[in-house]
Amino acid sequence: MARNVAVLIGNGLSVAFNAELNLQQITQEVLERIRRLDGDDVVTAMKELAARALPDGANTDEDFEVLVGALGAESRTLEVLNRLAQLTNPKDEELRDCIRKVASFAEQVCDSGISHVLQVITERSHAYQDTAQNLNSLVASLTDAFDGKVVLANLNYDTLLLSALLNVCQSDLADMGHGRKQASVILDDNQTREVQQLRAFADDFPQEKRVQLLHLHGSLTFWATRDRTTFVKIPKNLLEDGEQWHAVRNRTTNIRPAVVLANRKDKVEHVTRQPFALAYNMYTVGLKGAKHWLIVGYSFRDDPVNERLRTEFLDRTTKPKVLVVTYGADPERRTVERAFGWGVEDGPSDWLTINRGGANGAEKTQEWGSFIETSKQGLPRLGAES
């Protein structure tokens, strides 16, 4: 019988294979770039938002969420204003025009802020030769050990994991880019280009591809038309020279990034929209179909993600075998147990193993070997696990 695994990847994996993707460093670099900007009212508004959000700079990884939450907050303003413009009495064209101008300004501030964040990540989204080989080794160990479905839910915006998967198992891989459907978009050079659309339905994923890569919160390469009716995947090489990010800020492209860059509260709403809703739903299917769950570099601070894990975990009589790979003392075991809905009254969490040595080299550890071995032998029922 084929063995399936559901995998959740957080920022800790990216940092393990490229320290430049540390969230605190990214946040500090974005703050510095915004502070150095000269320009119009949009720039002034961005500076004000950044200064209010983090007046003392970036001191922890959590500050990344604070900054993007502040910069992305204008998206909520935009939605309210668009609704107001639609509700305004048609005879009051002057009021309607004013609302639309404010909505356009809010959209520019939001797009400009997000473009700076993603441009920094794009510039750092690479793996050096030795660490790339190590990441390839981790991915190969995982895909070799599980001969059934390997469903990877990635919370990172960078392309490190995708690159490793392409190197290791390209013929078995399906990501969210639709290989057979394309759309025309206008990029930074004012040229119309044909690029892949994103998959819209679960049936768009080919059944013969056993490895699925799902970006729960989007990717550098995920873009959408401004009316969010068309979602596309842009090749990363078209983003590396920085011109497309300038085009977003200058409004000379007809697409904008499709990512969840928001604080914890707003993420709950954002992930109900496409393409994120599809990714979450397919990850849930992956959880349901797997007796083994691997979680790498995740802080257990995303409420929508925790809710999916907890709901499926609590629904099971026989619990999945869970391996959490982290670096250092955070998160504590109790934090992980709480995320899964496991209380003190439930007894020892024999289903849970935590490897605190980090993702780089995790496939060589005893915890990994035990996790892989149980995948081959099958799991006893809860209470009989050692």
Rank of each mutant, 00 (worst) to 15 (best):
A6W: 01
Y128E: 15
G148Q: 04
H116E: 09
R316Q: 13
T88S: 12
L287S: 07
V102C: 13
R210I: 04
H178I: 05
A53S: 14
T225D: 14
H215M: 05
G179R: 14
K265N: 12
V211E: 02
D38K: 10
Q170E: 14
G343Y: 15
A145Y: 00
A85E: 13
S299R: 03
T311C: 05
A6D: 00
L160C: 03
P304M: 10
A362G: 10
L142K: 09
E269P: 00
D315C: 06
L71Q: 04
L155Y: 05
A164G: 12
V7T: 11
R334Q: 15
G343F: 14
A51C: 08
H217P: 02
N355R: 03
E74L: 07
A70R: 06
I9H: 09
R301V: 10
D227K: 06
D303A: 14
I354L: 11
G72I: 02
D158I: 02
D38N: 08
S184W: 07
A247R: 00
L220W: 00
Y298Q: 08
R251D: 10
R251T: 06
G289L: 01
G10Q: 12
R193D: 05
V211Y: 00
D189H: 09
T272E: 11
T272I: 01
F205G: 02
L294P: 00
G72H: 02
A200W: 05
V43G: 05
D63G: 02
V117N: 05
R96T: 15
T353G: 01
I99K: 10
P206T: 05
Q207D: 09
L216V: 02
A329C: 03
E93N: 09
R76V: 15
Q108T: 04
K181V: 08
D63C: 01
D97I: 01
S184C: 07
A45E: 15
I295M: 11
K181H: 09
Q133M: 03
G328V: 08
V120T: 03
A70N: 09
A85M: 04
N355M: 06
R210H: 09
H215C: 09
Y298I: 04
Q207T: 11
V211T: 04
R210Y: 07
